[in-house]
Amino acid sequence: MPAAAKVRPRADHPRPVAPPPRERPARRLTARLRGPALPYLLILPALALELLIHIVPMAVGIGMSFLELTQFSIRDWTTAPGAGLDNYRLAIDFNAPVGQELLHSFWITCAYTLLSVGLSWLLGTAAAVLTQGPFPGRGLLRTLFLVPYALPVYAAVITWSFLLQRDNGLLNHVIVDQLHLTHDRPFWLLGGNSFFAIVVVSVWRSWPFAFLALTAALQNIPRDLYEAAALDGAGMWQQIRRITLPSLRPVNQVLLLVLFLWTFNDFNTPYVLFGRSAPAEADLISIHIYESSFVTWNFGTGSAMSVLLLLFLLVVTAGYLLATRRRTADA
């Protein structure tokens, strides 16, 4: 990816290989020793940990996808018969139920992720920008917005499932018993509505994170910029559009990606909301794979599905990074 590196001029960054000429020889020596090796030393702990916890298990996981790993062989993997590409064939045979369900689940997950990330980001940005200037109660409100994020997933999601119950939940109590908007009590955890239920719960849980990240990013915008703009006669809205939003771009670039990957692979929210099996309309892929590997002892197939998912996410992420880098460079 040399192209991506090139579009980012870094002429101004400190080059450890070229120490300022004023330094004494002894210092220069240590600087040189530290110089080229230093970045590697800095990333070493991260690298080692990622290798141990992610990369190696991931490699094993990829290996699993080529095995027929079931209850018969899980105890001693050497006895697992090789499956070649059978697991993959099963997963992408969209004419058979397994493939169909996977594809269906994939589309559901895509729609869910787009909606959830979009809304979370929108709410987060709105709240961060609107709470930027001081007003009475701002601190309280900021804290309140962070509360959903501070609750353990289980507690938060079980509360939602509780208030979305058809017969006893708060939501139906309000729209049916109090506002009389409809006579039939709608289901929120079954059928088509369950999709919106999971989106809302997911947004509720993740927008505070967007809010937090953006609030922090806003602190880094120098006030001079606003003052200069104000001197030029720019109004509040123009200041937001011309200064605030563009300055958030580097953080947004990462934040959206973070939210995307986080939401796409989120296991906890659907698992607590729907239990081991989600309604077809809200059959998110993480639960789907759990069900087709863990619950049914079919680890090879589940691994193959995960590898396909990994490839998809890699492609999306790479495309996203290339696109945003280029746009950032143009700006």
Partner: peptide, 8 residues
């Protein structure tokens, strides 16, 4: 590859 093998 080496990692995969060791892990395997």
């Amino acid at each position: 590859t080496a990692t995969a093998l060791v892990a395997g």
